[in-house]
């Protein structure tokens, strides 16, 4: 098995992007569940669960945004080689 450092920069960049995408996809599933649970709770008349749901959803969005910026930086690095 080849060491990651031996791979060409573009292949390494692709691997990073695929990894980040997978992580974002998993986070999105959690966010979908959060949204549906918050909506269900709201329709049930429970108004207190909306705050933690919004906070967690915001944190997940920030993580996704961070991963996207990370991907952009990796992409710029790879292209500069």
């Amino acid at each position: 098995m080849r060491d990651l450092a031996e791979l060409p920069p573009q292949t390494r960049g692709l691997t990073t992007i695929v990894g980040a995408m997978s992580l974002i996809a998993v986070l999105l599933m959690v966010q979908v569940w959060l949204l549906s649970a918050a909506l269900e709770s709201f329709l049930k008349g429970n108004l207190t669960s909306a705050i933690p749901a919004a906070i967690f959803s915001g944190v997940i969005f920030l993580i996704c945004l961070g991963l996207y910026l990370f991907v952009e930086r990796i992409d710029a690095d790879v292209r500069s080689h």
């Binding site: 919004a54 997940i60 969005f61």
Partner: peptide
């Protein structure tokens, strides 16, 4: 294409966050 998909996924995440804010 993968970068574009990543951007799309992040925008989807933003949309769901906005949905949660709307419920709030």
């Amino acid at each position: 294409t993968r970068r574009q998909l990543t951007k799309f996924l992040v925008l989807t995440s933003l949309g769901m966050f906005v949905g949660n804010i709307w419920i709030l």
